Amino acid sequence: MSQAKWQGVFPAVTTQFHQDLSLDLAATSKHIEALIASGISGLIVAGSLGENQTLEPAEKRALVAEAVKVAAGRIPVLSGVAETSTVAACQYVRDCERLGASGFMVMPAMVYKADGAEAMHHFRRVAAASELPWMLYNNPVGYPVDISPAQFAELADIRNLVALKESSANTRRITELRIEVGNRYQIFVGVDDLALESSILGIDGWVAGSGIAFPTENQYFWELTRAQKWDEARALYQWFYPLLKLDTHVKFVQYIKLAVQETGLGKEWVREPRLALTGQERERVLAIIRHGIENRPTLRGR
């Protein structure tokens, strides 16, 4: 089994659609190429931002196969795992392994609100279905199952569980996890507008959302945090912050897809039950995005 040590920016990429809402693999591939060119360390397809639950099973597999083809071994390609049953999740990871995926970002089983024992059982069963490495996506805000630091300590015997995406929006968790499990896992921040605060506390990576519309700036900001250039990072963060907050709204998919469209990296079309933004809401979000574009900072050495 690969002893992966994931770190750096692993953006969650949108799934691009044609206007008739059929899968647009060519447009998705174009965006992936732009992200790779920015210097990212890994890629996640079919996550929440990738509209996983609106994709048909065959579409998810086609998306993974295409991402693997485009990446061509340059970076690891992970797939989100958000099935509604444990059996389906196990089958999906086996299929993705055959398609060449490098690993997975595993969510709790969707729809059902599992208790602690059920959630732990689900993660153990999915882990056993493939030897590939994976990260556990902890997002009790969006998916009402919370894996505590003590539970992560219980899961530490799962050898291919190598990372966690911490999206509780509680930065205390980073310190609590380090106290509880040390450096057993690579910790990724999953809330964009806590990226600077989380970096100061000590993280290994960032599952970026809004930054996929601004990949060069996103990567540069991350590199500033790695170099502990906090004054420069804070200055760039102040420009970035309104854009990063697009990731923390219930309509984050629509908001970020609109940003991607405005920067020429994709289209805003989303599948139902999501609907494209209209009226005052669309104008408000466009104003934030366009202000960010108009005031893009000059990046030293870029």
Rank of each mutant, 00 (worst) to 15 (best):
Q53P: 00
E223A: 12
L63F: 07
P144Q: 14
E131K: 10
F10P: 09
W239L: 06
S210H: 11
G47N: 02
W206S: 03
V64F: 02
S102Y: 03
E56M: 15
I44F: 02
F188I: 00
A4S: 14
W230Q: 05
M1G: 14
I293D: 12
G73D: 04
V162M: 01
A101I: 01
R282L: 08
A287G: 11
D204C: 09
G8R: 06
P140L: 09
P144L: 11
L49D: 00
N183D: 15
E66M: 12
G80A: 07
W6F: 12
P133M: 04
G190I: 08
A37E: 14
N170H: 12
L265E: 01
E56S: 13
L201D: 07
L35N: 03
G292E: 06
Q19H: 05
A27M: 10
C96F: 12
E294T: 01
Q228T: 12
E118V: 14
F221E: 04
T278P: 01
R274T: 04
A67F: 02
T54C: 08
L63E: 01
A62C: 06
I200L: 12
R184Y: 06
A119F: 01
S79K: 02
S199K: 03
Q7H: 15
R300W: 00
S168Y: 01
V9W: 06
L243T: 01
F10D: 00
I187V: 15
I32N: 03
A62E: 13
P133K: 02
G116F: 11
W230K: 08
K60Q: 13
S29W: 02
L55W: 01
D24P: 02
D247P: 00
I179V: 15
A4T: 09
E131P: 14
A37Q: 14
E262T: 02
R125S: 14
E33R: 15
V207S: 06
F214L: 13
R282K: 11
R178Q: 15
V253P: 12
Y255I: 05
F214W: 13
L224A: 08
I256T: 03
S102R: 03
I147M: 07
R124I: 07
S79M: 05
H291D: 15
S41Y: 05
I187L: 11
G266P: 05
A213G: 12
R282E: 07
E176K: 04
C96D: 10
I212N: 05
N183E: 13
I147K: 03
R296D: 10
E131F: 05
K113T: 13
W239G: 08
L99K: 10
A128R: 09
L161R: 04
P149M: 09
H18D: 12
V45A: 06
T216L: 14
T84V: 12
L99W: 09
D193G: 05
A235E: 14
L244K: 08
A169D: 10
F221V: 04
S79R: 03
S148D: 04
L275Q: 14
A65L: 09
R98N: 09
Q53L: 15
I289Y: 05
F240Q: 13
I212H: 05
S79N: 10
A71G: 04
